[in-house]
Design a protein around this nucleic acid. Structure first.
Lengths: 107, 107
DNA sequence: GCAGTATTTGGCTAAAATTGCAAATACACT
DNA sequence: AGTGTATTTGCAATTTTAGCCAAATACTGC
């Protein structure tokens, strides 16, 4: 496999990885619904230390999934790409499929 | 936030995480195209040790993304959920968006 | 400038993920 | 049973990620 192809999959994986965490997924979901949220609101939502949430956010930003804007002393984050929400539907179908298989194992 | 909601995001994250690796993404893509592949074919494609590839595959299987079938001495893997391919389009748009932003920084 | 609030960053520790090698397992063929 | 091929698993080393606390930074209003 050539170098360019390999690089493409690494880039894709970086973006997937940025979302592959419950707290980050939760925040992405919240931003998709609400449009934008400041760090303090997201901190309350997630329930971890603000420094932890801030790190999660900078990771998302680094991946290009969100953008931030400082207004006053607060920093607001919002989604940069809308299509992300399409993921959830598919993920849910995987979960549902897994649940069905679990059921079958019990019978 | 209630316990059930938290659990849901953890389940989602587990599935995202299963895909968040270049080699696994590559294999998922290959399986989406080809229908099914044995471990040896995927090993050649990925270019890592077969034991490593086998571990990646069992991880994908554990997440419910692929299923396997043993025929003779070979084990064939195939995608369990088709919608996964929709992801790539969105991921690519993120990458393209990032590239555009990079460009703007240079001007 | 000082006190107070919002956010990020440095430093550290603990946990999880990744990988290859060697050994074990499973099957096919003789 | 014995050899050869395909795959998985045990193990150990390394790297990455996650989390918190404390300190630094940035801004507001007095």
């Amino acid at each position: 496999m050539d170098q360019a192809t390999r690089a493409r999959y690494e880039a894709r994986a970086r973006i997937m990885k940025a979302m592959a965490h419950p707290a980050r997924l939760l925040m992405v979901d919240e931003l998709a619904r609400s449009g934008e949220r400041c760090v303090c609101e997201l901190t309350e939502l997630v329930g971890s230390d603000m420094s932890t949430v801030s790190r999660h956010l900078s990771l998302l930003k680094n991946a290009g999934l969100v953008e931030d804007e400082k207004r006053g002393q607060m920093v607001f984050y919002r989604l940069r790409v809308q299509c992300i929400m399409n993921f959830f539907e598919c993920i849910e179908s995987v979960i549902a499929c897994n649940a069905r298989s679990q059921q079958e194992l019990l019978t």
